[in-house]
Amino acid sequence: MNAAIKLFMVIVIGVEISFIQSVPLNLCILAVSCCYLLIKRVSIKSLLYLIIYPIIPATGLLVSQLFYGIQGPIIGWVLFTRLFAYVWLGATFTMTTNIKDLAFTLEQNFRLPSKFAYGVLTAFNLVPRIITEVQTIRHASLMRGVTMQLWSPKLYFKAILAAINWSSDLSQAMISHGFVEDAPRTHVEKTTIRWSDFAIFAFWLILVQVPIFVF
């Protein structure tokens, strides 16, 4: 399925369940997402992560409603299952699609200027270096006797200074690799939007409405 349409579909469903208080709806979405991920052979480790990760925040929401909710415990369970639904629904996109697919289709089918698509892509590749950089900055300042808290403006400042240098290096490298802003490019991997993409989109969207009326 086209990556952008898939993302849009998942977002639409996610937003819709935010406004509908229904435990069965959340459970249906959870079940369908789970089946989809199993079919797509997502690793067991990832699935376990998806089970464990939402537990703390979901429990927090549940307990809070049990204590302070004025509409009874049911809302607590709606929120509890909704959070799992968000995470599992989201995984149907993130665990089966990569940022390159999304960037390619946005560039080729949705007229996103290529500088945005590739600019964000190149920044994405720098994430591991940024993590190291932030840690190194904090270490380096400790060597000068200064503790930089995570909310310290100086920490952001130093990291942004590095980012300024990197943005310069990366754009120079892209230019050197022939990239010209707003100039046409050719595409080896052609992304397409088919009628079937819209059909799948409509199918799932309609299917999501079913539990709302059934339960």
């Binding site: 600019g119 920044a123 920490l155 990291a159 943005s167």
Partner: peptide, 22 residues
């Protein structure tokens, strides 16, 4: 919206994301 600025804005967002993540 030059290429360089786009990369930098994205990097600033990522820096903030990384610090948040920490």
């Amino acid at each position: 919206w030059s290429l360089r600025n786009i990369i930098l804005i994205a990097l600033i967002a990522i820096v903030c994301g990384v610090i948040f993540w920490l």
